[in-house]
Amino acid sequence: MLEIFSIGAGHAATALSSLMDQTVMISVPQLRIVKSHEMPQALGTVDQAYITTLFHLRDNYGCLLFIVSQEEGRNIVESWLKSKIPASFDSFQRTIVPGVVESGNIIAGAFVNALGEITPTQMILEPPDSAVDFLGGVLDNIAATLDINFTDIFLFDVNLRIGGHNLSAYFALIPSPGLLDMLVSAGKKLLTS
């Protein structure tokens, strides 16, 4: 999975470099497999507010999450625009959140394309949805609605380098049982080839 995500990260870095008109590098130093209810603690504390972007995978293959702290979200967008964003609530909602969602959209799209290269199906992202809220609350909403509590989540640490700035974020894949089977099967094939 780390290898697949790294391939996707390379594609995403190319796309982001083009969009942001500067060099973007993405590395994925760590993959953890955590239970959904353990994820907030794995990222820090449950009562920290993050910018969380949710992407459903069409045909019920599961969903992807792009998660950044508010501070790192601001840093990503300011590095992208090469300017300071005013510290107002309005600027945050109108510029920083959409900028983070768009960055997540590009990374998620590249990851899904990389997944498509190793699984027998083409996965399509649904339009994103986002919330700036306590991570514990956002995740319990997702877990309850999809009834995926206590299931395994692939949690990737993501390091971005935009221009000269080092930034960190998280990316999570919550696979449906069907997608998980496909990934296990593809992983076995990769290991034996």
Partner: peptide, 11 residues
């Protein structure tokens, strides 16, 4: 509730 657009975002 969460504080949005704060440098220190922990409640």
């Amino acid at each position: 509730f969460a504080q949005v657009n704060r440098s220190s975002n922990q409640c």
